[in-house]
Simulated scan of single mutants.
Amino acid sequence: MEELLQVANLVANKLSSRFKDDPEKLRMLQGLKVQEEAGELAEAIIGALGLNPNKGNSHTWDHVRAEACDTALTALVLLHMMGGDPEWFLAEHLRGIKAKAEDWEATA
Rank of each mutant, 00 (worst) to 15 (best):
E2M: 13
E2S: 12
E3K: 14
L4W: 11
L5W: 12
V7Y: 09
A8L: 09
N9W: 06
L10Q: 14
L10I: 09
V11I: 15
A12I: 07
A12P: 00
A12R: 03
A12L: 05
N13Y: 03
K14E: 04
S16T: 05
S17W: 01
S17H: 08
R18E: 14
R18F: 10
R18H: 12
F19E: 01
F19Y: 14
K20Y: 06
K20N: 09
D21K: 04
D21T: 07
P23F: 07
P23S: 05
E24P: 01
E24G: 00
K25G: 02
K25M: 11
K25P: 00
L26D: 05
R27P: 04
M28H: 09
L29W: 07
V34Q: 04
V34W: 05
Q35D: 15
Q35N: 14
Q35A: 15
E37I: 08
E37V: 09
E37Y: 05
A38Y: 12
A38H: 08
G39W: 06
E40W: 04
E40Y: 06
E40D: 10
L41F: 10
L41W: 01
L41D: 02
A42M: 14
A42C: 12
A44K: 02
I45R: 01
I46W: 06
L49C: 05
L49Y: 03
G50T: 08
L51F: 09
N52A: 09
N54F: 13
N54V: 06
N57M: 11
T60Y: 04
D62K: 10
D62L: 13
H63A: 05
H63S: 08
V64L: 03
V64M: 02
R65E: 13
A66T: 12
A66M: 11
A66K: 14
A66H: 13
C69N: 10
D70C: 06
D70Q: 13
D70G: 03
T71L: 14
A72K: 00
L73G: 05
L73Q: 13
T74C: 12
T74N: 00
A75Q: 02
A75W: 04
L76S: 00
L76N: 00
L76E: 00
V77Q: 01
L79R: 05
L79Q: 11
H80N: 15
M82H: 08
G83Q: 03
G84E: 05
D85N: 15
P86D: 05
P86L: 03
E87Y: 04
W88D: 11
W88L: 14
F89W: 09
A91Q: 12
A91E: 15
E92V: 02
E92G: 05
E92Y: 09
E92K: 13
H93E: 11
L94Q: 12
L94E: 12
G96C: 07
I97C: 06
K98R: 15
K98W: 11
A99K: 15
A99W: 01
K100R: 14
A101Q: 11
D103N: 10
D103A: 11
D103W: 03
E105K: 14
E105A: 08
A106P: 00
A106N: 07
A106L: 08
A108K: 11
